[in-house]
Amino acid sequence: MAAISREEVAHLARLSRLAVTEEELDRFAGQLDVILQSVARVGEVAAEDIPPTSHSVPLTNVYREDVPTTSLTQDAALSGAPDAYEGRFRVPRILDEED
């Protein structure tokens, strides 16, 4: 049985903001299925009582003091922007939540 369907891949691509083509969907669905079947092997390990590791360094409480540092200039901040207007990043219209 396939671990992942073409529809699921299409849904995940939408969630990830990837406008994948039909051809890519066909290809990815098969490839991702192989990969997911392989990685699903982690499930074979009995690990109910094992704590998960999210960080490999055993550090805690790393903080900075609340002291201002130099920010970028507005020009530097906008230097890489595909589109900017009057000191702000310009983006196409945002879909209304109510749309």
Partner: peptide
């Protein structure tokens, strides 16, 4: 009302010119 942001040293002053209290971290 901290002097700087949560994850970087940019100031939090109200009413500053747009995109002047930004750095690589908060951008």
């Amino acid at each position: 009302g901290t002097a700087t942001k949560m994850f970087c040293g940019c100031k939090t002053d109200f009413g500053a010119e747009p995109n002047t209290q930004v750095c690589p971290v908060c951008l």
